[in-house]
Nucleic acid binder design. Structure first.
Lengths: 224, 224
DNA sequence: CCGTAAATGTCGTCG
DNA sequence: CGACGACGTTTACGG
């Protein structure tokens, strides 16, 4: 990894056209050839960048001033005009073991599938990721009376999730072995607009308590 | 901006829980207190980070080893355990003039509005950003027979865009002065699933040629 | 401040 | 490799 602090201007031409006027910035060159241009503010997103795979050609004099040109196969082009170099260092980082995540939607789905009776007494899991022509429904279950129920799970329940479940329900209800299929929209948090839309479509909303689900799961695991 | 190359492990607890095993990485501390943890690969996204506003507390010995704790108001927490510091430098960057963009969806919309006859002979533009209760439709037009047409424009046409247009059409068709309103889904590229859904809803799909639209626009501009 | 839509989205997964 | 949905999405914009 190469770290350069330089006064520079930047031009990008690719999926859009963009320009950065001259200022002092961090130029970060990664081992895979990718380049990030960071300012001293904003968020984690660089002002400008080129993602790998790409190739960097540096045309610079002894003082470091000159032109960096980064291109990729799609013909996107990032041109950095370096006027003055204030810092330049190279570092060997090695390979990163990578991030381990926990607590996302997949986990919610696994927990709820394992504890489907949370939704109602006598409920049974048919299967997770139940396939339809337009994609899999998170959970298909049967209620105590044997009626089919499609469950869509989100961390944050917004309008798109209700639309998604609506499409699934429309398809599932064409299957005479399943119809009528009820819908349940389950999320840790459900936005008011999503709730209204769900209600309008006859879809029930359930707010999931992640900690409680995890706690129950731990408790049940310990019974073995 | 402070640049630190260090062997470290990282733990994040907030919207999810995540862990990075010990390895050599770049720790980037911006003037606003935000912290980015970058490896020597991946893309512009850091392995882990904390966005501003947040506060950093460093508890370290003379050799730099110790613990960095970054917290924000929402109670999210990023803990960096520094084992060894390989580089540490501070740089004054000043304020950045910021990025100037060109050539996004707004431009597509302007071009298509100026050349609405691209969609059909005798078509007239009613207005861009035609307001509805749930937000503005990109373009409202009248075809050669005077029938109302709502146009939704995307750079990449995916399923969400069709849903969006569907909601607009539902509302517009309640207006007796407009109904019946046809829908057109226009994009530089339309995904197969979006096309299928659009067809199912009676919405026509149009693939836009950005270069051709721009070319026509330039050609017409030159006539003045 | 909330809600919606766009993004040079990026990232995983699965066919 | 492409399609699709999630994301600690982030970011910009409008009410």
């Amino acid at each position: 990894m190469r770290l350069v602090i330089a006064r520079c201007s930047v031009d990008y031409a690719g999926r859009l056209t963009a320009h950065l006027a001259s200022a002092t910035r961090l130029l970060l060159v990664k081992a895979d050839g990718s380049v990030l241009v960071h300012s001293d503010g904003g968020s984690y997103k660089p002002l400008n960048w080129m993602s790998p795979p790409c190739s960097l050609v540096v045309d610079a004099g002894d003082d470091g001033s000159g032109t960096w040109t980064v291109t990729n196969k799609a013909g996107e082009r990032l041109v950095i005009t370096v006027e003055e170099v204030l810092h330049d260092s190279e570092h060997d980082l090695g390979i990163d073991p990578g991030l381990v995540k926990d607590g996302v939607e997949a986990h919610l789905q696994a927990l709820l599938a394992a504890q489907i009776e949370t939704l109602g007494d006598g409920w049974r899991l048919v299967r997770r990721e139940y396939p339809t022509a337009i994609g899999p429904v998170d959970i298909l279950a049967r209620d105590a009376d044997g009626g089919a129920v499609a469950v869509e799970i989100k961390r944050r329940g917004e309008i798109d999730g209700v639309e998604q479940l609506t499409r699934y329900l429309e398809l599932l209800n064409r299957d005479p072995l399943l119809a009528p299929v009820r819908g349940i929209f389950a999320a840790q948090e459900i936005k008011p607009q999503a709730r209204v839309l769900a209600q309008d479509r006859g879809i029930d909303c359930v707010v999931l308590d992640y900690d409680a689900l995890r706690g129950l799961d731990d408790a049940e695991s310990r019974l073995f």
